[in-house]
């Protein structure tokens, strides 16, 4: 089984790009299963089902969607196996910039929107810097010079990744990405580990505290002045 984990900020074009890639995979007689993880709402799984691929939607609700997808990796792999798929494609919610959902044995694909400006690659952190493949979308909207600068900034953050320009509307670049998907190694996931630690959040807000006054805050707290302390029993 190949596992492809696709991450990227909301609206970057993950689903549109995947739709094109899946069509290329199908034309090469590969039948992936797709899982979309989101928090509140998503119609993306329906878009995948229209292509005739088995698709599953997971909503994490008030839980961190990346934690949620890690807890459910096993179920997702079983889903793909049950469908006799050679490949599991996992599209993550892409919400915060603190973690990277990739595991060591998956192919980690980061989809990033070039119209978000040339400082974005410096801001998004591990889901860019630990990716194997970076797909840049919406390059047709900006000048060639800005595209080249954006690419340069990505390579500054992740010098070993393979960068592909892709257009979610026309599908340009998706053929090349499909090649990356196909050349991913068939992994065993029994002893797989994350490439980067999951987001840090161990305080009472995590379990439902709503009061903002500082006297109620418990747990591992990090203050804006740089001091980090444990408050509580």
């Amino acid at each position: 089984m190949k596992m492809i984990i696709v991450a990227g900020t909301p609206g970057a074009g993950k689903t549109s790009v995947l739709v094109h890639i899946i069509k290329h995979l199908q034309s090469r007689d590969i039948h992936p299963s797709v899982v979309k993880i989101d928090c509140i709402y998503s119609e993306d799984a329906e878009r995948f089902k229209k292509l005739g691929v088995p698709a599953l939607l997971g909503l994490s609700k008030d839980m961190c969607p990346d934690h949620y997808s890690i807890y459910n990796t096993w179920e997702m792999l079983e889903f793909a196996e049950k469908n006799r798929s050679e490949m599991l494609i996992l599209e993550t919610a892409g919400l915060c910039h603190r973690c990277a959902p990739y595991t060591q044995n998956c192919l980690g694909v980061c989809v990033i929107d070039s119209t978000s400006g040339p400082n974005t690659p410096r801001k998004v952190g591990p889901f860019l810097s630990s990716a194997d493949v970076v797909a840049i979308t919406k390059g047709d909207i900006i000048s060639q010079a800005e595209r080249e600068i954006f690419r340069e900034r990505i390579l500054e953050m992740n010098p070993t990744c393979s960068v592909t320009d892709v257009n979610g509307l026309t599908g340009y670049g998706s053929y090349e990405l499909a090649d990356h998907f196909l050349s991913a190694t068939d992994g065993s996931f029994d002893n797989d580990t994350l490439r980067h630690t999951a987001p840090f959040s161990v305080c009472t807000l995590c379990v439902g505290e709503m009061r903002v006054n500082r006297k109620y805050h418990r747990g591992l707290l990090r203050k804006i002045n740089g001091i980090q302390e444990y408050t509580g029993e």
Binding site: T115, G117, P118, N119, D140, I141, I142, S143, Q144, E146, I149
Partner: peptide, 12 residues
């Protein structure tokens, strides 16, 4: 080299 139709820069 390409001069596209874009009329504005977006890079901040």
């Amino acid at each position: 080299a390409q001069l596209s139709q874009n009329m504005n820069f977006i890079a901040d």
